[in-house]
Amino acid sequence: MLSDDQLLRYNRQILMQDFDIAGQERLQAACVLIVGLGGLGCPAALYLAAAGVGQLVLADGDAVELSNLQRQIAHGDGDIGCNKAASVAQSIAGLNPEVKLEVQPHYLDAEQMATLCSRVDLVVDASDNYPTRFDLNRACIAAGIPLVSAAAVRGEGQLAVFDPNRGGPCYRCLYPSEGSATALSCSESGVLAPVVGVLGALQAMEAIKLLSGYGEALRSALLVMDLATQQTQRLTLAPRPDCPDCGHL
């Protein structure tokens, strides 16, 4: 049951006939794990908090550096040296104090991911390395929950929802090999600040759609964006029958 203050705070969402109070109540009852509170995780976390997701679990073992501030918008100059998950939690508390926050100020191993995924409704993968992405993929499959995945570098980005328990591929169907340790990094290749903002906001949008029942989630598809030219492609993805992660489903 939404309070009068909540009805006012979320008024613009509730006014949408295909979202309504029922969608807002679903958001309020939801719990989301966000792994990585950098360029993607900052806007994703802020928008999910502002939209009224009831509980956020924030996980990152990294500390804020000066070079992060160009794009990681939940951190400020005074947060340099602080843990990123704790810094984002502080920003969210100022934005929407109703959101319940759990801070995991460390990098998650596979066992910790499995434990956290078993008690949340959805995972936003805002990490920047393949081992974490593959471990999260397996944890989400085991828990039967969706994984909202994005990546961004230079002026390019991609977005997908992996939810093989409800049909479609998993992350490893798209990237079968686990051989590479790190993804193409912003520190090596550069990135324009709004690029991670756009992709992180789109992650929040997909999460809100999945949690509230609004719209159509980006399952079985990969959105590929070149923001330098504003060209966007939506590619159809199919599950791999021999996928070692989801082939048993």
Rank of each mutant, 00 (worst) to 15 (best):
E111A: 15
Y130M: 11
A152T: 09
E98Y: 11
D135P: 00
I80T: 09
M113A: 14
L147M: 15
Q112K: 11
R133N: 02
T132P: 00
A142P: 00
V153F: 04
D135A: 15
V99K: 02
G78V: 09
P105R: 06
V120Y: 01
Y107P: 00
P131A: 11
V103F: 06
A85Q: 10
A126Q: 11
D128A: 12
L95K: 04
Q90L: 08
Q112Y: 01
Q90W: 00
V120R: 00
N137K: 02
L101R: 11
E98D: 15
I80Y: 03
I92C: 05
L95C: 05
L136H: 09
C140V: 11
A142K: 14
L136M: 12
C82I: 00
E111I: 07
P105N: 08
D125A: 10
I92S: 05
V124E: 03
G81M: 07
S149R: 01
S149C: 12
P131T: 05
S91R: 15
C140H: 07
S118M: 07
D121H: 14
G81V: 03
R119T: 14
E102V: 13
C82R: 15
N83E: 05
N137V: 06
E102H: 07
L95R: 09
V153R: 10
F134L: 14
Q112G: 04
K84A: 06
A126H: 12
D79F: 06
A85T: 04
T132M: 13
L116N: 04
K100T: 15
G78T: 14
D79L: 09
Q112L: 03
A150C: 10
A150W: 09
